[in-house]
């Protein structure tokens, strides 16, 4: 049995209460949502917060709803709810494809959207998809809230714009009528982090790419994104040749590191191959829309 270092625990009753607790304990406090990254790190004593602020009771963060032309996902929404959400599936089939390959059912039952974004693991799938869809995140503190584009949210691996005393409350995803989307992932085994993964959306009108987004995880893409490849593809015909060219640009833009999941050259190759596959299927489902 792994034994964490001494810690204390408080269960927040509202977002305001959680913020008050966070303020009280400063940088020694950590928010606990699903706990599926934090608790394992504590058990290995890689993380040793002195105070856990549990936000599992915060019903105000558990919604998936449409507001205007955005889908709003509360920070406490579990992966399992994203997987099952008809709203998300209707607008972006990629959410279901992505969630299907995130960890395993046990983790998905507990792990949360907010936790995934804030953990900011470079191999985190939902962050890649959020980046592909050019969503925004809402961060609250005692003074109020601010909205940050997903592509500015992460400073780098494991670091985000959420400061001490702040809570990520929502993810907002723009709705794009007619968009097709897809998610591709290579993993060594189900439940493992990605060797490489790619989420894309494409809006095709009259054979031309009107809009698109590409997000990549685990391959060293800054902000999980590939803006050069998107810029190349937008306005071009949705041909195999152009998709392949965009995929190559996306891969060029990546700087993966070798690890036990695979060497850098392989990951770079996967970035290209998976981008191409995701774009292909996005185009197909967009045209079908």
């Amino acid at each position: 049995m792994q034994t964490p270092a001494p810690t204390d625990y408080v269960r927040a009753t509202s977002v305001d209460d959680a913020l008050a607790q966070l303020q009280k304990y400063g940088d020694e406090a950590r928010i606990m949502a699903g706990g599926h990254s934090l608790i394992p790190m504590m058990r290995l004593r890689l993380a040793r917060p002195e105070m856990l602020v549990d936000i599992n009771d915060l019903d105000e963060l558990k919604h998936i709803k449409i507001e205007g032309n955005e889908i709003v996902i509360g920070a406490m929404v579990r992966h399992r709810e994203v997987l099952d959400s008809p709203i998300l599936f209707e607008h972006y089939a990629a959410f279901r494809e992505c969630e299907k390959v995130i960890a395993d059912p046990v983790v998905r039952n507990r792990g949360t959207v907010g936790g995934s974004f804030c953990q900011a693991d470079p191999a985190e799938d939902l962050s890649a998809l959020g980046s592909a869809l050019r969503g925004t995140v809402v961060i609250r503190n005692a003074q109020g809230s601010r909205t940050v584009p997903m592509r500015e949210f992460h400073y780098g691996p494991y670091t985000t714009q959420v400061e001490d005393g702040e809570i990520l409350t929502e993810i907002r995803i723009p709705i794009r009528p007619g968009a097709g989307s897809a998610y591709e992932k290579v993993e060594r085994r189900i439940g493992d982090w990605a060797v490489a993964s790619v989420g894309t959306f494409v809006v095709v009108k009259n054979g031309v790419v009107e809009d698109c987004g590409i997000g990549l995880a685990a391959v060293g893409a800054p902000h999980y994104s590939a803006p050069e490849a998107e810029a190349f593809l937008i306005g071009k015909e949705a041909t195999e040749e152009n998709l392949a060219q965009a995929a190559a640009i996306a891969a060029d833009h990546c700087d993966p590191a070798s690890d036990q999941r695979g060497p850098a050259d392989y990951k770079k190759h996967l970035a290209k191959e998976l981008t191409l596959r995701a774009l292909r299927r996005s185009v197909q489902s967009s045209q079908g829309a």
Binding site: V186, V195, G262, P263
Partner: peptide
């Protein structure tokens, strides 16, 4: 024979 080793 992980995906990486097969590819290599």
């Amino acid at each position: 024979l992980t995906p990486a080793n097969v590819w290599r």
